[in-house]
Computed example of a mutant assay.
Amino acid sequence: MDTLQVILLALIQGLTEFLPISSSAHLILPAQLLGWEDQGLSFDVAVHIGSLLAVIIYFRVEVWTMLKAWLASIFKGQHTEDSKLAWWIILATLPAVAFGFVAKDFIQEHLRGPGVIAITTIVFGLLLWVGDKLSRDELTEYQTGWRKALLIGFAQAIAIIPGTSRSGITITAALLLGLKREAAARFSFLMSIPVILGAAILMSKDAMSTDAVIDYQAMCLGIVMSFIAAYACIFFFLKIISKMGMTPFVIYRLALGIVLCGFVFM
């Protein structure tokens, strides 16, 4: 890949990892418009590492506090709001792990086409609008509870279907369950840490099993650019989400889905 391709794809991954607009839908567009080939597993690992570092560093205080509280709940039996939140995030991760293990091969084979991504971009965009309009907007992430966390986790499992958007479907579920917009986004972003980490580990394992030449310069640039984009995305999204709501992202998803449909069906 040339430098422009690396920068563009890393920025796309960093931005769309946390915005509710589907990263897979956006990564199709450069390939369709510019004829770019698949970037390869090593580059996928790099941009996921950049996104992971961004969310961990942004929430470094919360992550450290939850980690200490979680360990205290195990070894000392001390249960606090932070330890409960940590357990809920772990619980919410389990459905995605199970669904990914069972359905990964089927989805890779049958549901990665641009037609599927175009349709899911539109359908789950509309569902995001419904979630935003019906939300009671009253709970924080510390009031989620294990039942709601598990339901959000099942929603996250659906995101293995390309075009769904992991952040989009988890924020939608959290809104429908009564979380405030910012709390829904924060819970979704914290949930992303184990999921992105797991995905990066699996992709690293697959990458090491191939004979493909690794472009370390492209990987380093990809990490840096995806980190910058993801960190900026998290920062600004949390600043504006309470006032702006989800409607602009819904409109954007619908327009993107229509454009993708144009590539597929014309």
Rank of each mutant, 00 (worst) to 15 (best):
L134Q: 08
V116W: 12
E182N: 06
S167C: 02
E182G: 00
A149K: 09
K148E: 00
S192R: 09
L139P: 07
T144N: 02
T93C: 02
A173D: 06
S167E: 10
T121M: 10
I107L: 06
D137R: 10
S135Y: 06
G115N: 05
F124R: 06
L126I: 15
E182H: 07
I122M: 14
A98K: 01
M191R: 11
R136L: 14
W146K: 07
Q108G: 07
Y142R: 14
V123L: 15
A185L: 11
D132V: 14
Q156V: 10
T164F: 04
T144L: 15
A103I: 01
Y142P: 02
V97Y: 01
T164G: 00
I158W: 01
E141K: 14
S135M: 08
F189V: 08
L94C: 01
A103T: 07
L134E: 09
L139Y: 11
I122N: 09
I117F: 07
A185V: 06
K180A: 00
I158K: 00
A183M: 03
I196D: 00
D137N: 13
G145I: 01
P95Q: 04
L177T: 02
I169L: 06
G125Y: 13
T164I: 14
T121G: 07
Y142N: 09
R181G: 00
F189S: 05
A157V: 10
T93K: 07
L197H: 06
I161D: 05
K148Q: 04
R166E: 12
I196N: 01
F154C: 15
P194Q: 09
E138V: 10
F187I: 05
K180Q: 11
T93V: 03
V116L: 11
I161Y: 06
R112M: 13
L134R: 12
T170F: 02
Y142L: 14
A157T: 11
G178L: 06
Q156D: 08
L190H: 02
V116A: 14
E138D: 05
A96Y: 06
P162H: 10
T93H: 03
G198T: 06
L190S: 03
W129H: 13
Q143V: 02
G178T: 09
T140S: 14
D105W: 00
